[in-house]
């Protein structure tokens, strides 16, 4: 664990060329009552192949931050660079998986994925695109549900389709916005494990928003905890040291797990407790 007073300095120790660089990012929304500062001076460097989780109370601007990486939003000040190039608009190199799946209800599972593949790889032949679609659906275990429509499958399966779709276009960063928030506990754990397996195999860079401390501790390499808005910034970053591949039972019995969990709890409930109204 490290308390980041100067995150850039700490991260520069790694010496790697930063893959994703978020530097002094601020976001200000003009409102009728005046300017509203959502984020202020956010600094974060993500290495290639890293799994980063972002946690914070609602309204802490974590979604805004992710939107800037996906390109749906742009910073008012500072910069967001991917491989040294500024991010200005959404693109297939940064694929987002939303909590509410965002599947087209009138298309089958196969067509939903194939649509993305065709849009991103127009130069590939139909057979190649078919192969990509099928292999990605196979990866998430949906071979048999391929011809079903989203309305006919469970929430967990929908989210699997969504993940397959995101991965099928080979993004450089996978962005997950509370992907498992709407699922029941059992399905949630299954999907977490599947996501980890896929990630471990492909070492794709992942940025994920979550509300669930246990989920974050199980999945990520670093847990980024945001302070409360307005003018939210990164309050603390926890390094999650568990060996990979991770087995849930082992992680949860690791004494370090309890320590990290309590640190996160302390940050969220004590030091940056959220008081509505």
């Amino acid at each position: 664990m490290q308390t980041l007073t100067n995150p850039i300095a700490v991260n520069s120790k790694t010496g790697d060329q930063p893959f994703l660089l978020i530097e002094e990012v601020g976001k200000v929304y003009p409102t009728k009552k005046g300017d509203y500062t959502v984020l202020d001076g956010v600094n974060l460097t993500v290495k290639e192949g890293e799994f980063v989780c972002v946690i914070g109370h609602s309204g802490c601007g974590k979604s805004t931050l992710l939107d800037m990486v996906s390109g749906f939003n742009t910073p008012t000040s500072g910069k967001v660079l991917l491989n040294g190039k500024p991010i200005t608009k959404p693109g297939p190199d940064r694929m987002v998986v939303f909590q509410n799946y965002c599947l087209l209800p009138w298309k089958t599972v196969y067509e939903n994925v194939n649509l993305a593949v065709s849009a991103v790889f127009p130069e590939k032949s139909k057979a190649e695109r078919d192969e990509i679609t099928r292999s990605n659906l196979h990866m998430v275990g949906l071979d048999e549900a391929m011809n079903k429509k989203p309305g006919q499958i469970s929430g967990g399966m929908k989210q699997r389709v969504s993940i397959a779709r995101a991965l099928s276009i080979r993004p450089e960063i996978l962005i997950l916005d509370e992907p498992f928030g709407a699922l029941d506990a059992i399905t949630k754990e299954e999907l977490q494990e599947e996501l980890l397996e896929i990630w471990e195999e492909h070492r794709i860079t992942v940025m994920m928003i979550t509300h669930d401390i246990d989920e974050a501790l199980f999945l990520c390499d670093r847990l980024v905890m945001m302070s409360n808005g307005p003018s939210a910034k990164i309050g603390e970053i926890l390094e999650i040291p568990f060996d990979r591949p991770r087995v849930r039972e082992e992680v949860m019995e690791d004494p370090r797990y309890f320590k990290l969990r309590n640190q996160a709890l302390d940050f969220l409930y004590n030091r940056f407790a959220h008081h509505e109204d």
């Binding site: 009552k33 005046g34 300017d35 307005p230």
Partner: peptide, 15 residues
């Protein structure tokens, strides 16, 4: 919460 706006606003004109 909002930080004070920089430009002066006349509510009637704005409306």
């Amino acid at each position: 919460m909002a930080t004070a706006s920089a430009r002066p606003a006349n509510p009637i004109v704005e409306k």
